[in-house]
Amino acid sequence: MTAATLAGFIGSALVGLGLYGLITDPQPIRKILGFNLIGSGVFLLFGIVARKGAAAGFAADPVPQAMVITGIVVAFSASALAIALVLRLYEVAGPVSLRSEHTSNKAEK
């Protein structure tokens, strides 16, 4: 089993794990963790794609690697925005989870 194949397994498993966390974890911050786990799993898949594309003297295809770097920065920005929202929500409304619908359909201004 090559490192790339193994990374493929890890990547797939991370997506599954992250998805589970995203679905079941009631706290928003844990959902953000779940999202990051899925994200890193996806990046790993890019990684093995890059590794399988080793050619022309490069140990890995540089294009997917560059995409991962871009992706990591985007994922960080997303986490930062999400965290800021969570913290602001706690400030304004106290502890809340996304599980319960925060506003009912009939809520009036």
């Binding site: 998805l19 995203l22 679905i23 079941t24 959902k31 996304l98 599980r99 619908e101 359909n105």
Partner: peptide, 16 residues
């Protein structure tokens, strides 16, 4: 039914 489907776990499971 809508209220149920719009619960977070239900919606993410639907996505999957």
């Amino acid at each position: 039914l809508d209220l149920r489907l719009r619960q977070w776990p239900a919606a993410t499971i639907s996505l999957g």
